[in-house]
Design a binder for these strands. Structure first.
Length: 825
RNA sequence: GCCGAAGUGGCGGAACUGGCAGACGCGCCGGACUCAAAAUCCGGUCCCGUUCACGCGGGGUGAGGGUUCGAUUCCCUCCUUCGGCACCA
């Protein structure tokens, strides 16, 4: 039994054994409580996994194993979000079909995940590029369409004039095309949208019901951007209609001295007078071209043009001029604002530049009034506002003004959201075809569900065309079809779907991954969902996590699922940086792969270090020597295990001193079980490991120095419990030792150890003695010691005594088991 | 600019509810083993002062202030770093 710790031999052997036994197969049904532990749907990139990815997968694997040992039926699946641009761009460059490249990447991912001993149930593996999967992604599109949540709309899309292609947002860097570096502009395209804004309020409200990091909830809250205000009508001079604006400060209406429309506002053409037309048209053209490129510059000077028209301020009947400016966005509110320069920073800047009147209508609480050097946006009371003067604003004034105008039908309360509808069309090949046909006779016709999937055809050339269409548009065989309704001539939609659709429902597929008659088996989903523990990077705070919540609510409303939030608990792992503190990237050549670490130290050491490296959610730099430290920890565990197992006889009965050391070993063990259990549940993996290191140091010290402290049977019991605690983090070595101990079954299925509070309780405690808050002595006393005895002992303690001499004790603080503090004059 | 998070040894970090700051690991220093090195094992390691030494004293958790017998922990102001949003009326 004097074997050296050889992780490679042990890990290969047990991985083969677990595979042969199908040890990670999850039962579809069980009497046990369920626990669904899910990682974010990974995109299998060509670079394979780095140790940074393992920061996600190792902790969720440890948690899955932990819950399994605690008697849960655990679902811990893996699959691939395999559509997407990188594979398509690779295809354009290298001429390799995206499917070939993607499948090679998946093979690498799976190999690496097995290498580090992840306990995925591979029988449930899914891939978004599999027609048996994406036919249901298409089905979800139809569901949205049926429910009026999928619609055609015109939207601006980035366009590169050199590459003659539409670009996704992330392909535009600083207003330039990522590939050729030329300036991009926006073109209008008719595209498909999902009406996520209809769910804005519920997406906001239900954040209160889920256990997610506050940071993520806050980001979603800000993204949704609820804003309470009012819509107010400003009658147009010389016309019968009115201009409607949204404002959050109706209390400042008396200070509205001009109006501003977004340059693309539909009323601009009709309102512009002949004298201003040329200037207005020129401004519109510029605003359109520069679009968001110029808006990237933070402190851009305001621009705008007067259009030669006037509106009437409904509170005082003043006629005020109407301007256009790109600081008003068409996509928010009504695309028009009333400008109150005295109390809005943007309006103030604009008014100063174009010498428009500034009227102060809110005075600060201290009453100071006068010439404004900047806009006053705080609270106060109304002035220069006729009958409303003196009223607290916005406070009481908000309702008073809105109600007053509301009586004349000129205003009403209104809630706006920043959230926009979800543009799902992509002019790309490597995605899920949108299941729609355009019939010459019937118009837009959805492909019936029983005719799905609309298969993605093979094409020769992935290069996007110059006409803002997907490469699919060149495939006549794909495009030309018959109308499902009338059988007449029809053409298929050639855009594909945003890949975020694939990841919006994948968690529903794992419970019944091969289900052929629907996206999911309702009974399986009822059992497993919602996901109990969902783990991934914080970079998906608003996109994926918001879309998946939206999908779930739509499914709930349609009666397909019985819950309306998909992920009960969410955790974000921190990033792992390279040793130099920079982001790991292939181009910097500083990527550390799990393969290289496993080769040097083995999978268990890698796993332990991934847990130990830092608090779970915190970014941290990788350190190869740190893995070595974890490897040493496992090496000492191995040596200890071999010694205990090789030892013979019943142990030497110890003397009295040994007896106390034996009790101490058991105390440490029970404390460790308690702390490891609690910290695992709390995702404090770094202290799980450090606690075990501390415990092992103490246990092995006693084993080495005072073996008679426990009987051999007790030592084996200590080793056995300790091995179980180690199993989630380092399953291979734990399994090996478990078998060396001759215990039955696999360590994967043994019950998690429990602790005994009495055995974990300290017999004596160290009480610190302070004088005026400064540490002077330490006393070791029984936990049952009486207050008066402790105080007396404290007063007499050698060093303390020196500081009490010739002093008056004013106060004695006593915290049982912790400290004594003498306050002296 | 606005919103949010975080600042503790040479490094990663620990400290449960306001009660021994620096656990655990890395690194470094010294020692053992070795012809030597690696590996392994043992001891030391916040700073300053003092002592032959065991000790003892002072300072110390980004800076300054406050509350408290007592603050890494609570409150205020400021600085720095990171993340998000970026004319949303």
């Amino acid at each position: 039994m004097d074997r050296r710790y050889d992780p490679h031999e042990i890990e290969a052997r047990w991985q083969a054994d677990w595979r042969a036994r199908d040890a990670y197969r999850t039962a579809d049904t069980s009497d046990k409580p369920k626990f669904y532990c899910l990682d974010f749907f990974p995109y299998p990139s060509g670079d394979g996994l780095s140790v940074g990815h393992c920061r996600n997968y190792v902790p969720t694997d440890a948690i899955s194993r932990f819950y399994r040992m605690r008697g849960y039926n655990v679902l811990h699946p893996m699959g691939w979000d395999a559509f997407g641009l990188p594979a398509e761009n690779y295809a354009i460059k290298m001429g390799v079909h995206p499917r070939i490249a993607t499948e090679a990447n998946i093979t690498t991912y799976r190999r690496q995940m097995d290498l580090i001993g992840l306990s995925f149930d591979w029988s449930r593996e899914i891939s978004s590029i599999d027609p048996d999967y994406y036919r249901w992604t298409q089905w979800f599109f139809l569901l949205m369409y049926e429910r009026g949540l999928a619609y055609r709309g015109t939207g601006a899309q980035w366009w590169c004039p050199v590459d003659k292609t539409i670009l996704a947002n992330e392909q535009v860097e600083q207003g330039k095309c990522w590939r050729c570096g030329s300036d991009v502009s926006k073109v209008d395209l008719e595209q498909w949208y999902f009406g996520i804004t209809e769910y804005a309020q519920r997406l906001l409200d239900d954040l209160a019901t889920i256990n997610w990091p506050e940071k993520i909830k806050l980001m979603q809250t800000n993204w949704i951007g609820r804003s309470e205000g009012a819509e107010v009508d400003f009658p147009l001079v010389g016309r019968a209609d009115a201009l409607t604006v949204f404002t959050t400060r109706p209390d400042t209406l008396f200070g509205a001295t001009y109006m501003v429309l977004a340059p693309e506002h539909p009323l601009v053409d009709g309102l512009t007078n002949d004298k201003q037309r040329a200037a207005v048209n020129a401004y519109q053209a510029i605003a359109r071209r520069e679009s968001e490129i110029e808006r990237l510059s933070t402190e851009k000077e305001k621009t705008g043009v007067f259009i030669g028209a006037y509106a009437v301020n409904p509170v005082n009947s003043e006629e005020i001029p109407i301007w256009i400016s790109d600081y008003v966005l068409m996509g928010y509110g009504t695309g028009a604002i009333m400008a109150v320069p005295a109390h809005d920073e943007r309006d103030f800047q604009f008014a100063m530049l174009f010498e428009l009147p500034i009227i102060e209508v809110i005075a600060p609480p201290d009453g100071a009034q006068g010439t404004l050097a900047e806009a006053y946006t705080g609270d106060g009371f109304m002035v220069n506002s006729g009958r409303f003067d003196g009223m607290a604003a916005p406070g009481a004034a908000f309702d008073a003004i809105v109600d007053w105008l509301g009586e004349r039908g000129l205003a009403g309360k209104k809630i706006n959201f920043k959230l926009r509808d979800w543009l799902i069309s992509r002019q790309r090949y490597w995605g899920v075809p949108i299941p729609i046909v355009y019939c010459d006779a019937c118009g837009i016709v959805p492909v019936p569900a029983d005719q799905l999937p609309v298969l993605l055809p093979e094409v020769e050339d992935y290069q996007p065309t110059g006409d803002a269409k997907s490469p699919l548009a060149r495939s006549e065989a794909f495009v030309t079809t018959t109308c499902p309704t009338c059988g007449g001539h029809a053409r298929r939609e050639t855009d594909t779907m945003d890949t975020f659709l694939c990841s919006s429902w994948y968690h529903l597929r794992y419970p019944s991954p091969r289900y052929a008659t629907a996206a999911f088996d309702r009974a399986a989903v009822d059992y497993w969902l919602p996901v109990d523990m969902y783990v991934g990077g914080a970079e998906h705070a608003v996109m994926h996590l918001l879309y998946a919540r939206f999908f779930t609510k739509v499914l709930y409303d349609a009666g397909h699922v019985g819950f309306d939030e998909p992920y009960t608990t969410l955790r974000n792992q921190g990033m792992i940086l390279a040793e130099d503190g920079q982001k790991m990237s292939k181009s910097k050549g500083n990527v550390v792969t799990p393969d290289s670490v496993v080769e040097r130290y083995g999978a268990d050491s890698l796993r332990v270090y991934e847990l130990f490296i830092a608090p779970f959610e915190q970014a941290v730099a990788w350190n190869d020597r740190g893995v070595q430290g974890c490897s040493r920890f496992l090496g000492r565990y191995w040596n200890f295990a071999c010694e205990v197992i090789a030892a013979s006889g019943s142990g030497v009965p110890g003397d009295e001193d040994d007896e106390e050391r034996g009790r101490q070993v058991l105390r440490t063990l029970h404390k460790t079980v308690r702390k490891v259990t609690n910290d695992m549940q709390a995702f404090r993996f770094n202290t799980v490991v450090s606690t075990m290191m501390e415990a092992q140091n103490e246990i092995v010290d006693t084993w080495t120095g005072a073996r008679g402290a426990l009987t051999l049977a007790q030592w084996r019991e200590v080793l056995s419990s300790f091995s179980l605690l180690l199993a989630p983090a380092a399953p291979h070595i734990a399994e090996e030792v478990w078998h060396m101990l001759g215990a039955g079954g696999s360590v994967l299925d043994v019950s998690w150890p429990t602790w005994d509070e009495e055995l974990a309780a300290d017999a004596v405690v160290t009480v610190v003695v302070q004088v005026n808050g400064k540490l002077r002595d330490r006393l070791v006393v029984s936990v049952e010691a009486e207050k008066d005895d402790v105080l007396a002992e404290a007063r007499g303690a050698a060093n303390t005594h020196r500081f009490l001499e010739s002093k008056q004790i004013v106060k004695e603080i006593y915290v049982p088991g912790k400290l004594v503090n003498f306050v002296v004059s």
